[in-house]
Computed example of a mutant assay.
Amino acid sequence: MRTERKLTRLDRVFARLDREPERPTHIDVPRMSRHRVVLLTATLAFYVAIVWSVIITSWLVRLDWQVMFFRPYQQWPEIHAFLDYYVVLGQRGPTAVMVAAWLGWRSWRQHTLRPLLALGVSLLLLNITVGAAKIGMGRLGPHYATTIGSNEMWLGGDIFPSGHTANAVVTWGILAYLASTPRARRWLSAVSAVISLGVGLTTVYIGTHWLSDVVLGWAAGLLILLALPWFEPLITRVEARILALRDAWSSRREGTASAPVLEPARAGGPPSATNPVGVPAMRSPRETSADEEPAAHEPVSGPCTPRAAVHLVPAPHTPRSERTPAAPIGSRRPPQSDRVTRGTTPARPLTGG
């Protein structure tokens, strides 16, 4: 009795993916709704409030110094080795490669470039906004602080806001932004929030950022994700442009491969279908010598008249025994006077009487 193989969970996943050879139609593109506009406005106000609190050296700056003097890496040294690896989830290079690999596979399966283009736009916005804020405010980190209790602003630093935290919010939050179902969006939003929260607190534990840097990094990354629907028309136009260039390049390659090969025209010949302008064609050395130096048996003067075609009349078939031999019968060797036939004794000359 033959039994069927029981499908594993991985087999069911690949079977489901094989049923989606084309771009899914149920994927909804996020729009700039009223709810999203309210969240964006509230996050922007929170961002400005954090910056203002640090500038005026409020209670938030005092909290930064208290956490720095607490030195968490000395309080819990047993988790230091693990957090050194965990903080990599907020570095731009490794996280961008991992997320781009996943989104590239999704782009190939769904026949769309939107996931990769959305990631590229979000990272570009992250570099511009966070980089400009870092350079503009120039805050020094805890390891380079000069005056106890000061905000350490405009002293040539580049840690405000936290780039690790903002990068974790954007790179892992883009997975939730591009989710195809509401349930997947909720789960991915929770996962990205946990990862970005852990990365931010890890930088405070190690001592590379103030606590206010991390809070501002969360706000900076969330602003980019909330404002991303405004760039969806740009993403659509760029995708259409790239696909049009791909189709044009493919058609150009197919046209080049199927183009007919034109025969070279004779030198000085009249215009024809193969030689529209009568351009002299290149000739081989044999043709050149035959044209420039005529043979001795051909007359030099006078035009060459074409020979008439000779039509051969078919002859009746005759057997081989009745055909006339092409060569004479007998030996083909020329006669030799001094050659002696084998088997005969040569005559001796007679001498004397």
Results as ranks from 00 to 15, higher is better:
residue 4 E to T: 01
residue 6 K to T: 11
residue 7 L to Q: 15
residue 9 R to H: 12
residue 11 D to F: 11
residue 11 D to H: 15
residue 12 R to W: 07
residue 16 R to G: 09
residue 17 L to V: 03
residue 20 E to R: 05
residue 23 R to Q: 15
residue 23 R to D: 10
residue 25 T to G: 15
residue 26 H to R: 14
residue 31 R to I: 14
residue 32 M to Q: 08
residue 35 H to T: 15
residue 35 H to Q: 15
residue 38 V to D: 04
residue 41 T to A: 15
residue 44 L to Y: 12
residue 44 L to I: 13
residue 48 V to I: 12
residue 51 V to H: 07
residue 52 W to P: 00
residue 58 S to D: 11
residue 61 V to S: 09
residue 62 R to Y: 05
residue 64 D to L: 10
residue 66 Q to G: 13
residue 68 M to D: 10
residue 74 Q to N: 06
residue 77 P to A: 10
residue 78 E to H: 11
residue 79 I to N: 03
residue 86 Y to Q: 04
residue 92 R to F: 01
residue 92 R to E: 02
residue 93 G to F: 07
residue 95 T to V: 12
residue 95 T to E: 02
residue 96 A to M: 09
residue 97 V to A: 07
residue 99 V to W: 02
residue 100 A to Y: 03
residue 101 A to C: 10
residue 104 G to T: 10
residue 107 S to W: 09
residue 108 W to R: 05
residue 112 T to A: 13
residue 120 G to L: 14
residue 123 L to S: 03
residue 126 L to Y: 01
residue 128 I to P: 08
residue 131 G to Y: 06
residue 132 A to V: 07
residue 139 R to I: 04
residue 144 Y to P: 07
residue 148 I to N: 10
residue 151 N to H: 08
residue 154 W to C: 03
residue 154 W to F: 14
residue 155 L to P: 06
residue 156 G to L: 09
residue 160 F to W: 11
residue 161 P to T: 04
residue 164 H to L: 01
residue 164 H to Q: 02
residue 164 H to K: 01
residue 171 T to A: 13
residue 174 I to V: 00
residue 175 L to E: 11
residue 189 S to R: 13
residue 205 Y to S: 03
residue 205 Y to P: 02
residue 214 V to E: 01
residue 215 V to A: 06
residue 218 W to P: 01
residue 218 W to S: 04
residue 220 A to N: 01
residue 224 I to D: 01
residue 224 I to N: 05
residue 224 I to Y: 06
residue 225 L to C: 04
residue 226 L to V: 03
residue 227 A to L: 14
residue 231 F to N: 00
residue 233 P to C: 07
residue 241 R to M: 14
residue 245 L to I: 09
residue 248 A to N: 02
residue 251 S to F: 06
residue 251 S to G: 04
residue 252 R to D: 02
residue 267 A to Y: 00
residue 271 P to C: 01
residue 274 T to V: 09
residue 275 N to H: 06
residue 284 S to G: 13
residue 287 E to D: 09
residue 293 E to P: 05
residue 295 A to I: 02
residue 295 A to K: 02
residue 308 A to W: 08
residue 310 V to C: 08
residue 311 H to C: 04
residue 315 A to H: 13
residue 319 P to F: 10
residue 319 P to Q: 12
residue 325 P to Y: 05
residue 328 P to A: 12
residue 329 I to G: 03
residue 330 G to N: 01
residue 336 Q to P: 05
residue 337 S to N: 05
residue 341 T to A: 15
residue 342 R to V: 14
residue 346 P to M: 12
residue 350 L to V: 12
residue 353 G to L: 13
